[in-house]
Design a protein around this nucleic acid. Sequence first.
RNA 1: GGGCGAAUAGCUCAGCGGUUCAGAGCGCCUGCCUUACACGCAGGAAGUCGGGGGUUCGAAUCCCUCUUCGCCCACCA
Length: 919
Amino acid sequence: MPELTFTLPPQYDPHAVEAPLYRRWQERGLFAPRADAEPYVVVIPPPNVTGVLHMGHGLNNTIQDVLIRFERMRGRAAEWLPGTDHAGIATQNVVERLIAKEGKTRFDLGREGFVARVWEFIRGTGPIILEQLRQIGCSCDWDRTRFTFDEHYTHAVREVFVALWEEGLIYRGHRVIHWCPRCLTALSDEEAESRETTGNLYHIKYPLADGSGSVTVATTRPETLLGDTAVVVHPDDPRGRPYLGKQVRLPIVNIPIPVLADESVDKDFGTGFVKVTPAHDPNDFEIGMRHKLEMPLIMTEDGHMGEGDGKTEGRKGESQRVPVELAGLDRFEARKKIVKMLEAQGLLVKVEPHHHAIRRCYRCDTVVEPRLSDQWFVKMKPLAEPVLAAYRRGEFAIVPERWRATFENWMENIRDWNISRQLWWGHRIPVFTCTKCKHRWADRADPQACPNCGGPLEQDPDVLDTWFSSWLWPFATFGWPERTADLARFYPGHTLVTAPEILFFWVARMLMAGYHFMGKKPFSTVYLTGTARDTQHRRMSKSLGNGIDPLDVVKLYGADALRWTLVGSGSLGADVILDPNDLETTFAPGRNFANKLWNIGRFILSQLPTQVTPIERVGRTQLTLADRWILSRAQATIREATASLEQFRLDEAAKTCFAFVWGELADWYVEAVKPRLSAGTEPTGSPSAAAQRAPAAAGDPVASRAAAQAVLSYCLDVALRLLHPVVPFITEELWQKLPGRGADELLPVASWPTTLKDLVNEVAERQFAFFQEGITKTRNVRSDYQIPPRQELIVHFLDATKDSAAGIASEKDTFERIGHLKLRFDPIGSHKGAATILRDGSEIFVVVDGVIDFDKQRNRLRSELSRLDHQIQKLAERLADPKFLSQAPAEIVDREREKERSWRRQHSTVFDRLHSIGG
RNA sequence: GGGCGAAUAGCUCAGCGGUUCAGAGCGCCUGCCUUACACGCAGGAAGUCGGGGGUUCGAAUCCCUCUUCGCCCACCA
């Protein structure tokens, strides 16, 4: 017997397969880019070093892997660069919590000790998330793994800082910034997330200093009144006139402050009078600047009432504004207490509920405190403009395209970027100040003394925003600022796949850095994924406890099932809804498909000899209708799946392959081919039923069997290649077992299938469709009349069309086998009725009417005719219009004429068809 | 306050340049352990494509409007 000797279990077990296969791929170095081809480059959005894999990672890394595997199989030098981000605040928070358990703070350890502790910690956790990526099958180029705090990377960050400094794009800004009182650091605008909340609007009376009355101000943050240095009113507001130039007495603090006119006031909001707290509100800060007001801080850095001088250089010694009974109180406690005090003094006019946005720290969710402070900023406009222009020229694309407006709007209104963080974990800002002559500069190396006066130096204590390193990811990872071979080869890259929430944090800035420092775009397409959500459409998050651990899914159903679900569950950029309470329902489709693939593979492999004729060498005359059909379908599948992947329609590609494998190959072709497979195994002349039945249409049973085997083998091979990017493990496991597979052939580097034009066969597809419809209708009858499965039917076909007759006749054997029926062609009966049944004793007689729904067909043709009529008429009018003929370019006129001719041809074809079926 | 997206079968979603369009998977109902698969096979029920207008010979598909969800941006205290 030529059959392969191995046996496979009837259920696919991913666990036995995945890890060894992955190891084999990696040991063979398949994930490194090949040397001799055009590169295709994807850089991973580096996850936090302390992170563990969540569904968001699962989704975007699966997408990246599908793309990279697809291009790798197409022969590109596929470079998927992996790595991690040092994640300044996030990591510092994690380690601070860790040492808090030992009863210590970072100040106990000291700066150096703390940083050493963080390094120690991430040496343990850093590799975890990358290891998890391997478990879901990611084919990253692990030899080029990078970390945003690598020595070399740090060098790049410093170079960028100094370069921007030298270009005058970095400056020290004294202004109100977002301050996180828990993380004790400044935040960028993007890091302070605004969220809608219902708070209160407090109306508070400020008595006039001369005792002649009062003005009422409205505020959402009464505690800040301690820092008020003025009350302002719009100059045109008549309510303000009597008070302008007067002084009011600030409640509680009991000091006089002026009432001033300022145009920034909205007359229609609140009372028209606005309290001004320049040190704790960005808007008030602007007012303060205009009127040269004092700007006292009335909160400590950790959000308690008190005179914090914070980072305000040279602005110490403001007057005492925080009374003893409030000093040291948490800001929200202080708010309550101040409200009570005001109430007691009869100064609280009213409190009304108020919707507004408050900002919270994106890392710890603490309400951010606006705070006057000195920070380093990057001037963004000069960086943003070239990117915006390039985007409008179409140099790179963002998909889905609907992000255009959001992106452009942000880029147009870009604000300067606060890059300094009062943290210890991060790239230290390379700015040095001479304590003697106050000379301040940025330096590529660590200087020992002031170059001007030789005096002692102080380095800026702050570190850089973590995004100030990750924005260099597409080139710093390849060796920039050195001109390395990698950099020359892998920059610019191609596709960047990431979540939309970091479009501004990361993507926009990478584009800016890329254009600014490399002079070229970092990638040609930004693919923005959807968000993983639960069934209530809430974002999956640790705090909500509604997440799904991708590795749980891998354990339960395998990596392929996970990937299949993530890829297949939504179109480009759509959110992915998953049910954390029902993993079975959520991931069963993937598992089921893997199992189906396993079993179809199992069957086909069991039918194949050790050597199979390549499909190109099978004589075309040996092919039956079913063969010609499935081969043609395979070509369509190759074409469509390839096109879908090229357009980033991964779900579409997966569904196309699914329909081919399950709906066509398994459901129809394998069933159709079974008689031929068993027929060839019987010695010639055997009295067995199979042997008697087989030869009728197919000729030589041995040749027919060989042809079927060649087709099966080809189709399985194609399907496995096409599916490999989405479900890499099971496809490799099966592909390895195909006859003729060389010992060192592996699927990740196998070639992507290309269509074989001579196998495209529309006639076969049409004929087989009739065959399918005939079977289906017969099954309908059987089911409707509850005819037992094994009872044979005699089916009489009306010879309605040539195609149906030819199709069905040529697959008579198959038809009879699948349907448990006998087939006869009888030119009897009318065309009416889809199926008629006649009972005749034990024998059942079915008439299937030529497999065409004539009414539906006629309606379709009629509507097509009327559409064509309409279009032809319109076009004819146009072509008769002298204005059109004289003004339109000649080629357009020609094209329209050709169009008209083609429509007229179509019209007569349709008309004939309608006529032929009696319309 | 601006901008964007979604609303199609019980659930999760395709279809949205007007021929091929009312679909898939899951769930449900009825038969089947048919020698690859019960994680399966065959058959079936189920949707006035969110409401209302409009354009058209013809609209899930284009336009307007309303409703409901969701997201992003914004210094209205």
